[in-house]
Design a protein around this nucleic acid. Structure first.
Lengths: 166, 166
DNA sequence: CCATTTATGAAGCAGTCGCTACATAAACTC
DNA sequence: GAGTTTATGTAGCGACTGCTTCATAAATGG
C-alpha cells in the first residue's frame, strides 16, 4: 500500500471515530480534520471533496459494524430469543452509536441523499443476512422473510428508543 | 385572537408545509421565511428565536398528523389486519412526508436534541394510543403492549423503506 | 546536486448561518 | 392631530460552510 493510501486509511479510521462520537450532523470539514489530526486543507488533498470523505468514513463505519456483529457468538435460535438478544445488542454502549449514525443516514436517505440511500441499503441487507444466519428456521425463503420481520422490529425499537420510548 | 397571534398561526401553518416538503435539514431562517411569505427579520419578530420557530412548526406538523390519523375510519381489528393497513397508510403519499420528518426528528433526538426528543416522544405516544384504540384485544395492558409491538414494526418499516428496503 | 514530485501551512473566497441595530412607515390611542 | 405602539425593510455582524490559491518545505529520483 502506497504511503498516500496508508494515510488515507488512517484518516478514515479517525473519521469513523468522529462519526460515531459526534454524528453526521456535526461532520463539517474543519471538525473532521481536527478529529483526524490534520487540516481541512489536507483532507481535500487526500480526498476529492466532502462527499468522497463522507462516503469513505461511512463505509469504514459500516465495515466496523459488520465486524462487530460477526464477532458475536450468537448461534441459531428461535425468533423470540434472537429478538431479545438483538434488542439488548442494539442498545448496548458499543453498538448504540452505530445505530445513531444509521438513523441519521436513514433520515437523509428518506430525503433523497443518494450516498446515504446506498450505504443504508447495504447495511440493512447485511443486517438481514446476519439475522437470517442466526434464525433456526427451516427453508431459506421463510428464514429470510422472518429475518426481515425481525429486522423491522429491531429498527423500530431503535427508532422508538431514540425518542425515549420502549 | 389578537392580530399578532393570528399572524403567528398563519406563519406556523406555512412552516409546517415547508417542513413536510423540504425537511428539517433545509429549515434555515431565510428559506423558512420565504415559505411563510415573509422575511427572516419578521420571523424573528414574531418568534423569539429559531428554536421557538421550529418548536411551533413541529408542533403544528404533529397536530396535523394526529388529525389525519383521527380521520381514518379504521375500526378495531386483528393485529395482522391493522399492521397491513398501517404499513399502507405510513407509505401513502399523504402520510409519508410526515414519516420523513419524524425520521429526522428521531435522528436528532438520538443525538440529544431536547426539542426533538420531546416532540418525537409525544408523537410516538399518540401513535401508540391510536393503535391501541384500533386493536381488538381484550384487556388494556395486553392491548397497550400489543400496540407498542405493532408500533415497533411500523417504525421499523419506515426506517427500512427510507433506505429502499421492504 | 539538481529537478521533480509530494506534502503542508496560511490566507482567503463567496456563500450561508442565526441574529441584531437602525431606520421608518403604518396604525392605533388619547 | 400629537404621541405611542406595531410592523417592516435594509443592512450588516461575526461565525461557519466547502473549497481554492499561493507559497514553500520536504522528500525523492536522475
Amino acid at each position: 500500500m502506497s504511503k498516500a493510501a496508508a494515510k488515507r486509511e488512517q484518516i478514515l479510521d479517525r473519521l469513523a471515530d468522529f462519526l460515531l462520537a459526534e454524528g453526521l450532523g456535526a461532520a463539517s470539514l474543519r471538525p473532521l480534520a481536527a478529529a483526524a489530526g490534520t487540516s481541512d486543507r489536507m483532507l481535500l488533498y487526500y480526498f476529492k471533496d466532502k462527499d468522497e470523505i463522507l462516503a469513505g468514513a461511512l463505509e469504514r463505519t459500516a465495515a466496523r459494524l459488520t465486524a462487530a456483529l460477526e464477532m458475536s457468538e450468537i448461534t441459531p435460535r428461535s425468533r423470540a430469543q434472537l429478538e431479545a438478544e438483538m434488542l439488548a445488542l442494539a442498545g448496548s454502549p458499543v453498538l448504540w452509536p452505530y445505530m445513531c449514525v444509521w438513523l441519521e443516514v436513514a433520515a437523509l436517505a428518506a430525503r433523497g441523499d443518494p450516498l446515504c440511500r446506498a450505504v443504508g441499503h447495504r447495511v440493512a441487507l447485511g443486517f438481514q443476512a446476519w439475522i437470517a444466519a442466526r434464525l433456526a428456521i427451516d427453508g431459506p425463503v421463510a428464514r429470510d422473510a422472518a429475518a426481515l420481520g425481525l429486522l423491522r422490529t429491531v429498527e423500530g425499537a431503535i427508532f422508538l428508543r431514540s425518542v425515549g420510548l420502549g
